[in-house]
Design a protein around this nucleic acid. Sequence first.
DNA 1: ATTTCAGACTTGATTTAGTCCAGATTTGGA
DNA 2: TCCAAATCTGGACTAAATCAAGTCTGAAAT
Lengths: 140, 140
Amino acid sequence: MSATTLRELGLHVTPQRLAVLEAVASHQHSTADRVLELVRANIGTISRQAVYDSLSALVDAGILRRIEPAGSPARYETRVGDNHHHVVCRTCGSLADVDCAVGDAPCLTAASDQGFIIDEAEVVYWGTCPQCAGQLQTTA
Amino acid sequence: MSATTLRELGLHVTPQRLAVLEAVASHQHSTADRVLELVRANIGTISRQAVYDSLSALVDAGILRRIEPAGSPARYETRVGDNHHHVVCRTCGSLADVDCAVGDAPCLTAASDQGFIIDEAEVVYWGTCPQCAGQLQTTA
DNA sequence: ATTTCAGACTTGATTTAGTCCAGATTTGGA
DNA sequence: TCCAAATCTGGACTAAATCAAGTCTGAAAT
């Protein structure tokens, strides 16, 4: 499936790209560095540059989504096209998916858009993950 | 007002901090680098580190808000406590304020919160600013 | 007015995340 | 098969921010 998908999008099919795709698919929300590790563990060798190039190509092609929460390096995920959002733990930085609260286009219409033509509304929820919340209680 | 505010919050009142505060107040959405320039133009000399220190102290004290849109260095603004959001232009990176679409707490309740304790919902609208939209039309 | 010291500031090195570059290699379609 | 375009490699480089160690200063207490 993956190889075919790449070819249909006019992208050359390379072992590196397939491995990058595989790494993100099996480890959602990975950073570029994590993908580098995963791919090396998988196919033995790949350059950092190739990882960045592959990730950008796949993001541009719409196969991957790049998310960049404040205070964290960019992360990548395969779930695209469904406009879901994310929760970030303030304590440990962990990240989880969250479905849209209101139908499938929450808050997409701003009250006053300042004349901007808006094409996407990105929502990031900030809080504390279950694990960190538990630890806070026990230490308190 | 500013000096008093700082003192009330238990922060030392220093010329650097006052100048940083002034710079952000008069130039909303500035980056740390821009603040550095502005303050130097104003009081003559300040270290980069002092700018970062002051900005963090003021953010921690709740006087400033830090926003970090993807692909941009951190920006600072004085408008705090009203939970407004931002529009970012994909073309030129310019940033504008946007009031909440739905009352004063849009999308704050996620559909499935994954067990996270959510304390803030941050919304970033992406699109094209009036200027860039105009230029695209003329060039097309 | 002086003393005192935690907090603030300075300089300079370091880290992190990511990009740029130039040359070698590989890919897919004619 | 063959070639131009696309991709990969390794290293140098940049931007943004942080760390470290020493010096200075605001403001509370004498």
